[in-house]
Design a protein around this nucleic acid. Structure first.
Lengths: 163, 163
DNA sequence: TATTGTTATACTCTATAACTATA
DNA sequence: TATAGTTATAGAGTATAACAATA
């Protein structure tokens, strides 16, 4: 209970001792996205399209609405993205024979190849950045980041609440 | 040179072993901002207004354009924000006697008081999240985050390049 | 003429609402 | 009638361009 202030960030005492998390994380996120952009451009992918490829690779999915929710996008927003990916034969979008309203979504072999190429390039860029951290901090940073980004109260925070 | 793959994220080998940094950091940033929102609302501040208060507190600043650049906002975007903060006497905005085109910006005592109250509340919320990390990871996470967010190639990445 | 701040305009992104087809 | 997907419309947020004041 009695940890020291340097560890916890002086909360109950006077002035804070570190910048707000959001003030560090949001700009960092923007910078990472900006760094990805040239790679995505080179492969003709938008961020949303890349996000779709990433998510379909993990789990083929049954409805577009479910996919949209999984990547935290509006269902109307991914339609043009799916149109494009399908026309380039990077994904399959087939009506479910058992309920022809729903579209079964999955990745093609070509789609998986592209996804791998892009992700490898992106993570190589990221590794260049991480390499500038002391090894101990880097490991802790990654562990902490992965732990935080899987906390349910963060991941689920934004659902369509009541009604 | 020969660190193992678990440490570095398998870059030159097959499939990546962790999610993309951006895929973890951007949603985390969104969640943190969403968590701040009720606190800001309670004090009648927008995120941009809070950002202005934060930055002026550290260093009183000479021109609005410089402030805008510092918080990575468009110079036209902060004008309404400054109007509001000035009318509530949270900041001062005085023409510089030596060059009456420029506005000298500084925080009032009331502005500092509000800033402290809001930041304390925000960081208390953040500490609740960080408390869920193992202590070792939390320290590494914070150190790594602070190191990354002060890297110049990230902070400066988006300047109005050439011309 | 160059620069600071401001206002007015246009554009991009996103969400809401209306529509089609299946059930 | 309810749901999946689509299309059309409107709104928020942002940047670009034109303007006024000062140097």
């Amino acid at each position: 209970m009695a940890e020291n202030a340097a560890d916890r960030g002086a909360t109950s005492e006077g002035r804070p001792t570190r910048p707000d998390l959001a003030a560090m994380i949001v700009p960092l996120g923007r910078a990472l996205v900006a760094a990805e952009q040239p790679i995505l451009d080179a492969h003709g992918l938008t961020m949303w399209a890349y996000s779709v490829l990433l998510h379909l690779d993990e789990t083929p999915i049954r409805t577009q609405a479910a996919l949209a929710e999984a990547i935290r996008a509006d269902k109307t927003r991914i339609i043009a993205v799916l149109d494009d990916l399908e026309s380039r034969e990077l994904i399959r979008r087939q009506p479910d024979p058992e309920d022809r309203r729903v579209r079964l979504l999955s990745l093609t072999a070509e789609g998986r190849r592209l996804r791998d190429a892009v992700q490898t390039a992106i993570q190589q860029g990221e590794e260049r950045l991480l390499a500038r951290l002391p090894a101990a901090d880097r490991a802790g940073f990654l562990k902490g980041l992965q732990a935080l980004s899987t906390l349910p109260e963060l991941t689920r925070g934004r659902g369509p609440s009541a009604s």
